[in-house]
Design a protein around this nucleic acid. Structure first.
Lengths: 132, 132
DNA sequence: GGCGTGTACTACGATGTGTAGTTGATGACA
DNA sequence: TGTCATCAACTACACATCGTAGTACACGCC
């Protein structure tokens, strides 16, 4: 797999990506800039640079629309978050170690008690679907 | 919870932490240096600096042993990995979104087909244990 | 054929990290 | 008791990343 998730991004890079995710369509630099609506306002070229860097990192795609580029995230926020989490979990030698998975479940449950139940339900559903 | 995981570390910081995890006992700077065994060898003070920084980040504890300090990781590798993964997963707004969890399962399974089954088993075991 | 809008290129400061030297304390040993 | 080895604190520097932005150049419209 080509794989994209590059660990972690800076705050502004994240904000820009979030703006793209929030929009359901590709956005121009100016549109992203407008959605960020910082006080004091960012320079137009700041947003341009950040989008450029995200493009270099292969985190966004862009297509020409007349004179301007329209930017679109290469993956959904869900994929981005999910893949990064999975990557952290499986990065270490012995990723299947029970200890790692237990620590993961403990920590996740501590943050959000429902998440483990949801995981369990999803796993069950997948198992059912695959058997079909 | 106090919480520790600071996102991600540099390569050398990781190597030093790994050395501490591999040892089952607190290590002196020199002992860590010996276990790293880099070619060409790192300067002693390089290892010292890295351990110092890890100490600043509250990732290792240290105690005086005669003239020297002995360093010990503040958490196990399993906890470190598990907590970081959970943190990534639950960081975003709507962490319980099915989409995120599905993407997580897909990605994890792609990397290691067994991990989902293990997770499922662990969840079941926890559920049983809690009901007791 | 200038003007506005957009992109590419360049830049600079802050921070984190790898790497290591210098300095000063301290304990052991002759 | 004075010297030497060992260790820790502090300082330093290069390099990458990121936030932030300016300048220069292209292109289409009026």
């Amino acid at each position: 797999m080509g794989s994209t998730p590059h660990e972690s991004l800076g705050a502004l890079e994240n904000a820009v990506l979030s703006a793209l995710w929030s929009a359901q369509e590709p956005l121009s630099v100016r549109a992203v800039w407008a959605r960020l609506a910082r006080r004091p306002p960012l320079a137009y070229t700041t947003v341009l640079t950040v989008l450029d860097r995200l493009h270099d990192k292969a985190l966004v795609l862009r297509e020409k629309d007349g004179k301007a580029f329209l930017y679109r995230p290469v993956m959904s926020r869900d994929e981005w978050v999910g893949e990064r989490a999975a990557r952290v979990l499986t990065e270490s030698p012995a990723s299947l170690s029970e200890g790692v998975l237990l620590a993961f479940l403990d920590s996740a449950e501590r943050t959000d008690p429902e998440v483990v139940a949801r995981l369990s339900a999803l796993i069950a559903a997948r198992r059912g679907a695959r058997r079909s």
